Computed example of a mutant assay.
Amino acid sequence: MNGRNRKDLQPGLTVDIILKADQRTGKLTRGVVKDILTNSSTHPHGIKVRLTDGQVGRVQVIHTHEK
């Protein structure tokens, strides 16, 4: 799942985000969502979130742990 729709996100999900500093390289950072910062329902570059460790970035991948 990509991170462009706010309805797909909720606190506690594991996601890969791209930090502002890593936008040129495309390096992803994995973490757990603490807060959803984007108010609009969609965003073309990904919904902005704050992870539990305090890092802020735009969601690129939502990890689902389905079996």
Rank of each mutant, 00 (worst) to 15 (best):
R50C: 05
R6A: 09
I62L: 11
V15H: 00
K34C: 03
L51M: 05
K27G: 02
L19W: 04
K67A: 13
L37W: 11
K20L: 07
V33T: 07
V56A: 13
T14G: 00
V15C: 00
T29G: 00
V56W: 11
N39H: 10
K48M: 15
T14H: 15
D53W: 02
G54E: 09
Q60D: 12
V61C: 10
Q60M: 11
G31L: 03
K34E: 14
G12H: 05
G3E: 04
D53P: 11
P44K: 13
S41W: 03
V56I: 15
G26Q: 10
A21G: 03
H65I: 06
I18E: 15
I18K: 06
P44S: 11
H63F: 10
M1F: 07
T38G: 07
I36M: 11
I36Y: 13
T38C: 06
Q60Y: 04
I47G: 11
R50K: 12
L13D: 01
R6C: 05
T38L: 06
K48F: 12
R58D: 14
R30A: 01
T38E: 08
G26I: 09
G26Y: 08
D16T: 03
L51I: 11
L13N: 00
H65Q: 13
D16K: 12
S40D: 14
S41H: 02
P44C: 07
V15E: 07
R6I: 12
V32C: 05
L37D: 04
S41T: 02
S41A: 10
G3V: 08
R30D: 01
T52M: 11
